[in-house]
Design a protein around this nucleic acid. Structure first.
Lengths: 184, 184
DNA sequence: GGCCAAGGTTAGCGCCCGCTAACCGCGGTC
DNA sequence: GACCGCGGTTAGCGGGCGCTAACCTTGGCC
């Protein structure tokens, strides 16, 4: 990955998060990178391709690291906690990507959207499987629904910013644990 | 409110939720209402005004009903539970509005955006005040952060749809309670 | 029955967008 | 030292957008 490509992806994440995919023109994005407009097409085939690469790559990272950490855990409860830790870590480190992922997901081209959906479903099922080990009487659909709710909980991070990151980390950890493990 | 105005607001909520504010043209919106394009301007001064009226009115409803129900509760814990109930009820009944509210909020004109922000801050503070009565050692900022997290939890509703509404209601109730009340 | 307001229609303007075309300077290679 | 590809430039096209203008039909009212 050339540094310019990475710079474009990073800056695009911030701009898309602030103003939405359709609210950022290629001229805006170029200008924010210190180049201007059409120069983007030396690095990406289209504006949509920028969004697609951004969202596919983070979906892959969430899945592969999440799966690895869940496998490394010693018990189902430890696995759930590891998944919570990982997701919080990621969400705090990549606030902009979290916002773009669930706001502009629908602006993806059909094939990229399906790719992202498939990766997300796999990631959800990693969580759901561990939850069902912790709560054996849990339906698969109910476990998936709980996972979506937990994502909503953790992904709320970018909308608040009232607390410093380390305090926010602890708060999210406690609340996610309370929501997922305590009540059953 | 004339029925046509209300119809436009209802249909606009669905379309904006599916494709985003900038992804829906006035021609699209008109066509979905059975009229065509510029006829919208007989009912609203601009496309932005449709979004503004939508978001301001739901922010007002969340605040006034939430405040009323919290006051009617017999204890701080009951007040938190009443707020959770109210928010879940609203989110399940108005999934589209929930999506639009936190996706297209940034597309509002400056004055409407400030109006919505102010209403939301007041609503958050209704929650935060009750949380501090339940957990007396809670900082105001921490209570506000917990409220944002709880909103993220409950507002995840539109993204799942795996469970029928009544089961989803119960699940959200239990998880929100576990996140807000159990761990302290 | 004439009038007016309400709520539609179509035509079209001006603007901005994504993207292409054509051109250019420069660093590396034989 | 000629050559070439990489990464940049500006000009401009085609299309879709929000919105206005001008006009038409209908229903209620004195």
């Amino acid at each position: 990955m050339t540094p310019r490509r990475q710079q474009i992806l990073d800056i695009a994440a911030d701009l898309f998060a602030q103003r939405g995919f359709h609210g950022v023109s290629v001229a805006d994005l170029g200008a924010a990178c210190g180049i201007s407009g059409p120069a983007l097409y030396k690095h990406f085939p289209s504006k949509d391709a920028v969004l697609a690469e951004m969202l596919v790559s983070i979906s892959e990272e969430l899945l592969t690291v999440g799966r690895r950490r869940a496998e490394a855990a010693g018990s189902p409860t430890a696995a759930v906690e590891a998944l919570i830790e990982w997701h919080i870590e990621f969400a705090l480190a990549h606030r902009a990507l979290i916002v773009v992922q669930d706001r502009d997901w629908s602006s993806l081209a059909d094939d990229a959207r399906e790719q992202v959906r498939a990766l997300q479903r796999e990631y959800v099922d990693v969580w759901a499987a561990e939850l069902r080990r912790v709560h054996p009487d849990l339906t698969l659909d109910r476990a998936r629904a709980m996972t979506h709710v937990a994502f909503g909980l953790i992904n709320s991070t970018p909308h608040s910013g009232l607390l410093p990151d380390d305090q926010m980390h602890g708060l999210l950890h406690d609340m996610a644990l309370g929501a997922l493990v305590a009540p059953a």
